[in-house]
C-alpha cells in the first residue's frame, strides 16, 4: 500500500493528535492552520488534565470509556507527561459536594488529613478529607502541543502555518479539526455546534508547590489548579454558555482568584501572568463526533475533553483511513 497523503486542517489538540496518530501509521501528513500558529483555538488555554475518572462526575460514561488509553498515548508521545494522580478537595462548608463527586466517580481513594499532607505538604491542615485518583495524569497543554508539532516536522511531514492552504485536490483524505471555526464553512455545524466559554488564569506563586492537579469543589464555581514548571499554576476554568469572544471578565477573575486563595492563602501574593478566554466547541450532549463523507472526515465538538478524548477519536479516524475498524 502506498502512503496515503492526508491534509489535516486545524492545529489544535484534535488536529495535532490526529496528525501524529496518522503519521504513526505511515501516512504522509500536511497540517494546516489558518491562524498561523498551533493551538490558536481553545486548546492553548486547556488545563491538560488527563483525568478520565474525575470527568465521570459530569460527563457521560462513554467519555470515561473512550479515554481509557489516553494517558498511555500522551506518555508515549510527550515525555513530560506527569503521572502523579489528581486530588479533589472541598472547603468545609461544601463537603456535600465531595460526597456527590465520590458517588459519581470511581478509581479513587478517600484520604484524610495526614495522607493529604504527605501527598501535598503545602495543603497541610487545610482539608480534612480529599479524594485521591492515583492513576490520573497531566500534561502542560502548550508544551505538549509544541512537542507534537516538532515530532511531525522532525519526521519530515509538512506544517503550513504561514500561508494559504495548499491545493487540496491531490490529497487522499482531508480531515477537518478546525473546532469552532468549522461553523464558518459547514452550515450543519453552524446549527448544531455551540460555544461554551472558558476562562483561565496563569499565576506564578513562589510560595506554593503542588505535584498534581487539585480540583476544589463548589456548588457554583468549581475550579482546578494544575501545576506547571517554574512555580507557574494554571487556574481554570469557567463554563459559560456563550460565544462571547472577549477577554476574561472581572467577575470570572474574581471567582477564580477567590477560589485559588481559598485553596491556599499564599496565592494572594501570586503574580498574574495571563488571564485568557477560549471557546470550547460542543454538541448538545457535549460528546465529540466524527463524520465521514467520501474522502472527507471531520472531528469536532471536543468540548472540555480535547486532551482526554483526542487519542481515541484519532484512533477511530485511523481506522477509517486504513480500513481497520474492528
Amino acid at each position: 500500500m502506498t502512503k496515503p497523503k492526508i491534509l489535516v486542517r486545524g492545529a489544535g489538540v484534535a488536529g495535532l493528535v490526529t496528525a501524529v496518530s496518522l503519521a504513526d501509521r505511515g501516512a504522509d501528513i500536511t497540517l494546516y492552520d489558518r491562524a498561523g500558529r498551533i493551538g490558536a483555538g481553545a486548546s492553548w488555554q486547556a488545563g491538560g488534565m488527563l483525568t478520565p475518572w474525575c470527568e465521570a462526575e459530569a460527563a457521560p460514561e462513554e467519555v470515561t470509556r473512550d479515554s481509557a488509553n489516553s494517558i498511555a498515548w500522551w506518555s508515549a508521545h510527550v515525555p513530560s507527561t506527569t503521572h502523579n494522580g489528581s486530588l479533589v478537595v472541598a472547603p468545609a462548608r461544601d463537603t456535600p459536594e465531595l460526597a456527590r463527586f465520590g458517588r459519581r466517580t470511581s478509581h479513587f481513594e478517600t484520604i484524610q488529613g495526614p495522607r493529604i499532607a504527605a501527598l501535598e505538604p503545602d495543603l497541610i491542615g487545610r482539608f480534612e478529607r480529599a479524594l485521591y485518583f492515583p492513576s490520573e495524569a497531566h500534561v502542560d497543554a502548550r508544551k505538549a502541543l509544541t512537542t507534537l508539532a516538532e515530532r511531525l516536522t522532525a519526521q519530515g511531514h509538512t506544517l503550513i502555518l504561514d500561508g494559504p492552504e495548499s491545493d487540496n485536490t491531490h490529497f487522499d483524505w482531508i480531515i477537518d479539526c478546525t473546532g469552532i471555526d468549522a461553523q464558518d464553512h459547514d452550515p450543519d455545524l453552524k446549527a448544531r455546534l455551540r460555544c461554551v466559554r472558558g476562562e483561565m488564569l496563569l499565576l506564578r506563586c513562589l510560595d506554593v508547590t503542588l505535584h498534581r492537579p487539585v480540583r476544589m469543589l463548589h456548588p457554583r464555581i468549581p475550579i482546578y489548579i494544575v501545576p506547571r514548571e517554574d512555580k507557574v499554576f494554571m487556574v481554570g476554568a469557567t463554563m459559560i454558555e456563550s460565544d462571547d469572544n472577549r477577554g476574561m471578565t472581572v467577575r470570572s477573575i474574581t471567582d477564580l482568584l477567590n477560589a485559588a486563595y481559598t485553596l491556599h492563602p499564599a496565592f494572594a501574593d501570586a503574580e498574574i501572568l495571563e488571564a485568557n478566554a477560549g471557546r470550547r466547541p460542543a454538541f448538545d450532549d457535549n460528546v465529540p463526533r466524527i463524520r465521514h463523507n467520501g474522502r472527507h472526515i471531520a472531528l469536532n465538538g471536543m468540548y472540555r475533553h480535547g486532551f482526554l478524548l483526542s487519542p481515541h477519536r484519532a484512533q477511530q479516524i485511523c481506522d477509517i483511513v486504513f480500513d481497520t475498524a474492528a
Binding site: R194, C195, E241, S242, D243, D244
Partner: peptide, 9 residues
C-alpha cells in the same frame, strides 16, 4: 452569558 447575543446557541 456575558452579553445578550452571545448566549444565542
Amino acid at each position: 452569558a456575558a452579553g445578550a447575543q452571545a448566549g444565542q446557541a
